[in-house]
Design a protein around this nucleic acid. Sequence first.
DNA 1: CGTGTTTGACCTGCGC
DNA 2: GCGCAGGTCAAACACG
Length: 171
Amino acid sequence: MENNYSMLFPCPPSSSYQIPTSGLNGQSSNAFLGLKPTNNEISVTHDDHEDVKGEEGSVNVIIDQQDVKKKGEKKAKKPKYAFQTRSQVDILDDGYRWRKYGQKAVKNNKFPRSYYRCTHQGCNVKKQVQRLTKDEGVVVTTYEGVHTHPIEKTTDNFEHILSQMQIYTPF
DNA sequence: CGTGTTTGACCTGCGC
DNA sequence: GCGCAGGTCAAACACG
């Protein structure tokens, strides 16, 4: 099926941070994602884009339908979301619990890429966190898959995050 | 003791 | 087939 996800990431109203993800893998989920940069602005971009800086305040989410194959299993398509965040720290607390399972040096990048998996049972959402050589202030977080469970931290924190996002986006 | 991180080895895909 | 790069595994380790 054809889906246009380009507007998937509107800034949610403060009363609700439900993000429409219906159509992704035929599933829907609430609170797909939130980011908590420790400071500064959030911008979101395509993981294919080279011009990482982007314009401040611009929001651009690209979902990449990636073929994932495993031995003996049929291909499954997983949505992939790349977020670009200006932050001093690599770890963005999005409310889910993540376990790091790997770290690799990336070519043409002096910073390593870290691999995380959601620790919730049955939820195999993955994310990669990578800092850019070009701009050390930029952290690129790539999410793969959709959480099959509600967010774990029921924090006010999360609403703060979202309100921050509204501030930093032109919507 | 439970949970998460570190890190080298291993696997896989791809280009030559 | 070979080498490289990216992705994952898993044992050892650290920490509250």
